[in-house]
Amino acid sequence: MTKLTITEIAAESVELLPARETLFWDVNTALIAAQNASYAVNAATVLSVAHSTAVQGITVTQF
């Protein structure tokens, strides 16, 4: 990561967004899908250990 100099900061500018009434689509939605799966089977055994690894996936789509 590089540090900004005073000259670079002074060169920054801002721009106002249009009024809310002028925006064509006034909708902000996000679709979120999350899945988490983990399975461990330890059937018909005595003094044994079952290990499980979880797999997780999250998808976010914003409009």
Rank of each mutant, 00 (worst) to 15 (best):
G57A: 07
N42R: 14
Y39F: 04
T5C: 05
H51S: 08
Y39L: 06
T7W: 06
A50W: 02
N28S: 05
A44K: 14
A11G: 08
S52A: 13
A19C: 03
V41T: 09
T61G: 11
L31D: 09
L47I: 00
T61P: 06
A43P: 02
W25G: 12
P18M: 00
V60I: 10
I32H: 08
I9N: 07
A10E: 11
A54V: 06
L17S: 14
V41R: 11
E8R: 07
I32Y: 08
T45N: 11
I32S: 08
I9L: 15
I58T: 06
V49N: 08
V41G: 05
H51C: 00
I32L: 13
A34H: 10
L4E: 06
V60H: 03
T22A: 09
V49F: 12
N28V: 09
V14H: 09
F63M: 11
T29C: 00
H51Y: 06
H51E: 08
V14L: 11
A10H: 08
G57V: 04
A54H: 02
A54S: 05
E21C: 03
P18R: 02
Q62A: 13
A11K: 15
A19E: 15
K3I: 00
L4D: 01
V46G: 10
E15A: 03
I58E: 14
V14R: 10
F63Q: 15
T5W: 07
N36E: 01
R20F: 11
R20Y: 09
T5R: 04
V14N: 09
Y39V: 05
S13H: 07
N42M: 08
N28C: 09
V41K: 10
T53V: 11
P18D: 03
G57C: 05
L23N: 01
A37K: 15
P18A: 01
T2V: 03
W25Q: 13
H51K: 03
T29I: 12
T2F: 00
F24A: 12
A44L: 08
N28F: 05
H51M: 02
T59D: 02
Q35A: 04
Q62Y: 08
L23P: 00
A54R: 15
N28G: 12
S38F: 07
Q56I: 07
I32K: 15
E8D: 13
V14C: 11
T7G: 08
L23D: 07
I32R: 12
A34W: 00
T2R: 12
V49K: 13
F63Y: 14
L31H: 12
P18E: 01
A44Q: 10
A19H: 03
P18C: 03
